[in-house]
Amino acid sequence: MMGRPQKLIILLLTVLVTVPIATTARSAESVAFPTQEWSFNGPLGTFNRGELQRGFQVYKEVCATCHSLNFISFRNLTDLGFNENEVKAIAAEFQVEDGPNNEGDMFERAAIPSDMWPSPYPNDNAARASNNGALPPDLSLMVDARAGGADYLYALLSGYHETPQGKEIGEGMYYNAYYPGNQIAMPSPLVEDGVEYGDGTRATLVQQARDVTAFLAWATEPNMEQRKRMGVMVIIFLLVMTGLFYYSKKKIWSDVH
């Protein structure tokens, strides 16, 4: 006799609790942007290795000139599908500072897989000085650090359009349809055929934007695939356990009147 009202109450409470949470997660002043289909969306989503490798190439050849990737080390690149020798070869392209040596001097050496991705600038002030006063943010957490995540990054990277009539753009700023306020200090980083993909994919601007966004999603959370895989098993287990305890409970309570 109490079944229906109780269910209603539970439903109501769930809605009442989740709605404010959902609204807090969205920033108030950001511009609306279209959602995209990503291979890593959803509870079973995984990364597409080809996309990640192309995205890594875009990061390495385009973004890395200004943006650091502080939380990624070369050894992490094995996740993208590179083998150990390929990772060693990629690392060896970079020089990192090490030391002090026996004479007490710092020295440069070729990077090894355990080294972190080297930053393009020695410090934030140097980065600002080279970029018209604006600090290019670190990219290792971009997808989690921006409301809208991958959809927003993709929209931003492919959102450099002609400045609309009547829109004032400040000195050294660029118009972007999706950046909050529409004025961004970063010029459009991607150009048609700006990189040459090894796998024959045509490097259109939107293709590069897509690939590098996928790469940044991986960099943000390299453990995402492990998390989702484990989650599926945990949920299945817990559902079975819930069922067992439901019948256990029913049985034990059957003699209470």
């Binding site: 997660a25 995540g149 599926v232």
Partner: peptide
């Protein structure tokens, strides 16, 4: 635990704020 696991494994940042990853 089932509900909590669903959030922890599939929506782990839904109750956080993006700015705290800066």
């Amino acid at each position: 635990l089932t509900i909590m696991a669903a959030v922890v494994f599939f929506l782990p940042n839904s109750m956080g704020h993006p700015d705290n990853y800066i």
